[in-house]
Design a protein around this nucleic acid. Structure first.
Lengths: 341, 341
DNA sequence: ATGAAAGCGCTAACAC
DNA sequence: GTGTTAGCGCTTTCAT
């Protein structure tokens, strides 16, 4: 059985040279004779040698591995981001270890420990919705392991952040509804502890203020954006004496779901109720009417993140340049909000 | 700077015990005195000790890491599967290294090599659409590294496979359309080199045959299921003298897209053209009309895969039990195909 | 240009 | 219940 792993010692022995030379040759070290190099590489190939990463990592203390912690894997936005990260990382010879917090702070903490123990060269994080304590990232900071947050970022941590201008996006979305003649705009969003939701809410308020509308607490519904929560929110709204005439909902899947409920209840969209979503997922394009939304370039964001991190890792030194990268977004106007022709 | 890593030797020295005991205590080995254990764990905590996985892996020749290679990360089905795998794997203490082939055989091969060199304990694969040569999996088979295929499987390889009965699903979908009175059913699908598409086509043919319909090559369109391809297919169909009265499309996103094109062109669904999709993605529920589809339990599939693989890894030995696991599917009837009341 | 030798930090068989 | 010891396979000074 050819079950035993070939090591550099096997090669060294067969060629009657030292393991050190084999090691050097395999790394294309300049100080090794070309002919020797060739003999070594040929034999390695022939024997089916493969480098033992652990031994190598143990020596060099590098892993060529990036860690990724996200709230959930199964959303189109997240998987696009990850696809983007993977594409760039893979090309640069880095592996990805991926885990999800399932929106639980405790899982996020556990995952961070795992990543740390796995000695990832860098860590990429989007926070769970309710994470309040960030001490699980201290170990990375202390060890100067590059840390990048995206989308849902930890503002208080000194680390690179890649995100969009959520406040602006919230403002644009709301302003658009106002321009379409909506007067009672409800904002359904996630946990405002998180920057993404807080900032969108801020933008919403700004747009209202600018238009001279007063802000009403009751017009903001903050929940976990699950189908159940959306259903309840809509039902609550429809029981009010004064119906809102527009919904600005913080993700497209929820917006699409809300749309289907409204239609079921016999309301017309956008005539009775205009809708604006968020993300520009595929889903926003196929509903009837299609949903006006904010474009959120996931794949692009993923690629940016990986590029920044890997650059960092290569030119190791300028760890001080922890920056904030803001990606562009724009309103995508569709039928769900267009009341004027 | 507290930059140096703490090792079990540091702990051993401070506590004046041996490194072996520290190692045992840290693994909660039963043969260590409870008090000693506590002292060790407390000190480890205090010093910020973290296990060095490389050293440990180097010793044990295990990595506690599973490799995953999929065609694309950014589809809801795939990300659900991965979410399922991650959930189970994480709970069992396994990490995931994930990569995507982007539907390219060469990338798939490169990823397989990476996985092999990273010494994953097991590999989970769904094939790229055009992979014809499977030699990149030989190294895993030879080394007895458990290999599991799911969804798009390599039939010729002796490995565990987790999938649904695509033939049955294709049959059910087609039969449903026939029962709804459709007579000219077009099947739009992916590369029939892959089992998933080939089997669905087979089921389609069986249902036609059973109903006494003759099979017509022109009624099957095999392409990459991209938006462009769908658009072209629909346009081609609409130019025919004899319009089909139903479309059975191999994924929901494509079906939803086809639906929007048809509506744009002024056709009524399901009256002029009935539609059945595949996967039961969220998207199939929010279109107007909602799309009849085949339920494909992604998260569940992911969990099954991880469980099977990890069981395998734990009771190492019964590698011979490479089985075929068929998950249940069912037709989900919705408006896009219901012509009879 | 090549070799000898010392570890990287951990585990596990064996001994007590 | 705890300690001794010998590596796991690689890299890297330091010699030569």
């Amino acid at each position: 059985m050819a079950d035993r792993e070939i090591t550099i010692y096997d090669i060294a022995e067969k060629l009657d040279i030292s393991a050190a030379t084999v090691s050097r040759a395999l790394q294309d070290h300049p100080a090794v004779n070309k002919k020797t190099k060739k003999r070594i590489n040929d034999l390695a190939e022939e024997l089916g040698y493969r480098s033992n990463k652990f031994a190598s990592n143990l020596r060099t203390q590098k892993t060529n591995t990036l860690g990724v912690i996200v709230p959930r894997l199964n959303s189109l936005f997240m998987s696009s981001v990850i696809a983007g990260i993977e594409k760039v990382a893979n090309s640069a010879g880095y592996n990805l270890i991926i885990s999800q917090s399932l929106e639980q702070e405790c899982r996020e903490k556990a995952n961070a420990v795992t990543m740390f123990n796995n000695r990832v060269d860098g860590l990429i994080v989007s926070l769970a919705s309710n994470t309040e304590d960030f001490s699980h990232f201290d170990s990375f900071l202390k060890k100067q392991i590059p840390l990048i947050f995206f989308d849902r970022v930890a503002e208080s941590i000194h680390a690179t952040k890649v995100l969009i201008d959520n406040q602006k996006a919230g403002y644009i979305a709301t302003k658009h509804l106002i321009e379409q003649g909506c007067q009672h705009i409800v904002h359904i969003t996630g946990n405002v502890l998180r920057n993404v939701y807080r900032d969108r809410l801020e933008g919403y308020k700004n747009a209202l203020a600018e238009a001279g509308f007063s802000f009403d607490e009751d017009m903001v519904m903050s929940n976990d954006l699950s189908e159940l929560a959306i259903q309840e929110s809509i039902e609550t709204l429809l029981k009010r004496k004064r119906l809102p005439d527009a919904l600005f909902i913080s993700n497209d899947a929820s917006a699409a779901f809300a749309l289907s409920i409204l239609k079921e209840k016999g309301l017309r969209v956008p005539e009775d109720m205009a809708i604006v979503g968020f993300n520009n997922d595929m889903i926003s394009r196929v509903t009837e009417p299609a949903i006006t939304t904010i474009n959120y370039p996931g794949a692009e964001m993923g690629e940016s993140i990986a590029r920044i991190l890997i650059n960092h890792l290569n030119n190791d030194g300028d760890l001080s340049v922890t920056s904030k990268v803001i990606l562009d977004t724009a309103l995508v106007e569709r039928g769900s909000s267009l009341r004027k022709k």
